[in-house]
Write a protein that binds this DNA or RNA. Structure first.
Lengths: 324, 324
DNA sequence: CTGAAAGCGCTTACAG
DNA sequence: CTGAAAGCGCTTACAG
């Protein structure tokens, strides 16, 4: 019927009599007619929905505001473009990549997906617009579109900061549960490289694999062998270290400097306030979402690459190493 | 075609020859056939999707982990039941309630929706399963299904705690931007009632309307007229107060006790750790989601009511009032 | 200028 | 036991 033309403003090139249109509108109102979006989606083969795929299920928790910021950025950008946002956890992913390409999404934003490369390959092969939100150096395939952050730059800034303060023996802390996560190792690697470039030596950087709650701190500290600064691969790890240090009566930063990654406003709540490498997560997420929607609309297949610079938020948890 | 029977396990009462089935499966694999969920949704008139409607857009931010916990609970419960979660902001709501009932959702979870009662009425009238996640005392219509928290109980616990510590003059702080939010006033009202029931008098409770960042603290403190404790209607407000107090060299809790609502693990990060009334947000959200899905599946129309008890997390920010 | 018909990709009731 | 057909509610190309 031409009802659709009147009610949804479709078919601009199709005209309808004014009184016919009026009748249609009146009847529609009387019957409380509501267009069914599923039918429209089927017909038009688009859903105005983007999917968010995460690698880990317990996303929103942890001692960090990372995912809050991320969600804020994504929803803000998506809503303003008339797109809805649907959440997928990894269950949908690895177990059944088909469900991602079953027509429900116009595009996918892959958040810190690092495992399950196969499912990524599938998505790309299926011509489902896909954008990775990931560390730039983890994206190896140049045909992949991504928005990345500069872990290398962040690690360099942390290394330069500590080195210039005079530290000559530092520990890089990786959470036990995160060793499957390449990002922790990537940051450790970049940090070590940068340290060498600062003029330090290899044996001045020790890699420590600790429980997420940093319970290892107590045993480690008395045997720290001259280490004067700890770098945690994550913000939440650094916060745990601060708590343990306080419990052990270790003064930060007088006795020990502590630095984290992924600085959020949580770092202002800790005591002392945490020095940390920062990514503008919300801004990045908004940009990523805009890019993805642009990919959906345009048909050119040039992969999109974009790297956000990092910066170092110097707060209160770092200082010159203790004199002895 | 009977292809559907083979591939999706539909039509159990319909049999197909074993070799026919095999052929179908082989060809499907060759062609990388993927069932289209939109078509299926159209046909079956269900989408296995629940919508999350919020009242305010800047949801995930703020100095609180409230929405993170909420999202964790919702996604966990939804995914385990095979449901997807779609995010809606208020733009979809007030501006166009039709979009909520356009067939995309099997049910809606209304999170702290307090304004826009009209849109709620619409949803209920349209037979779209709807569950409110709200303060119990804010839900006036008994035919409305809701999962609520016990603001009244929380306010009582806070009042009893302060009164029994010996405080006899307290301020209840409401953030300026939240006076449109009935919940702040509800809590203030419950607190005052409970205070009276404890044996206190009306003039012992002062209502303070401050900026969200508690910048009013500095001017207020010197003229506090004997107030020895501040209760903030929200966790983030209480955290702001702690920060201002520290900036003004006011000792908490020695000089002044501070209490908040909606305790999350953030309260353990503040200095001193914040005493606060707690809601089990994640658990509540999971329960709400389960209930909603049950409502979708069953057809009985009895409204569901459920109130979670509150509890008081006594940490370090409250003590006896200062001697003078 | 307007109405009737085809088709999006499924599912299921029905005919053979 | 299996295949062909109708229909979910839209949109749009087509016929009148």
């Amino acid at each position: 019927m031409s009802v659709s033309k009147v009610l949804h403003g479709r078919g601009v090139n199709v005209r309808i009599g004014a009184e016919t249109a009026e009748t249609i509108r009146r009847v529609a109102k009387e019957l409380e007619y509501r267009p069914n979006v599923i039918a429209r989606n089927l017909r038009s083969k688009q859903t105005n929905t983007i999917g968010l795929v995460f690698d880990e299920t317990p996303l929103f928790g942890g001692t960090t505001r990372y995912f809050s910021d991320l969600m804020n950025g994504v929803t803000r950008a998506a809503f303003s473009e008339g797109y809805s946002v649907m959440l997928c956890d990894s269950l949908i992913g690895p177990k059944d990549s088909n469900r991602l390409s079953d027509g429900r999404f116009d595009g996918l934003l892959w958040v810190r997906m690092t495992a399950g490369q196969q499912i990524l390959q599938d998505a790309f092969r299926l011509n489902l617009p896909s954008l990775l939100f990931a560390d730039a150096s983890l994206v190896t395939d140049p045909s992949t579109s991504f928005i990345g952050w500069d872990n290398q730059g962040a690690a360099r800034q942390v290394a330069e900061h500590l080195y210039s303060l005079g530290h000559r023996k530092v520990g890089f802390v990786i959470a036990e549960h995160s060793i499957v996560n390449p990002e922790a190792r990537v940051r450790a690697g970049h940090f070590r490289e940068s340290w060498l470039r600062c003029g330090g030596s290899n044996d001045q950087v020790e890699t420590l694999i600790w429980a997420a709650n940093a319970s290892d701190f107590e045993d480690w500290y008395p045997n720290r062998k001259g280490v004067t600064a700890l770098v945690s691969w994550s913000e939440s790890g650094a916060i745990s270290i601060l708590e343990r240090a306080r419990a052990c009566n270790v003064q930060v930063p007088a006795d020990l400097s502590v630095v984290g990654f992924d600085s959020s406003s949580l770092c202002d709540l800790t005591q002392p306030k945490l020095t940390a490498a920062r990514q503008p997560v919300e801004e990045m997420a908004a940009k990523a979402t805009e890019f993805l929607i642009r990919m959906i609309h345009s048909s050119d297949t040039d992969p999109l690459h974009f790297v956000f610079p990092s910066s170092l938020d110097i707060r209160e948890s770092t200082a010159r190493p203790p004199q002895r």
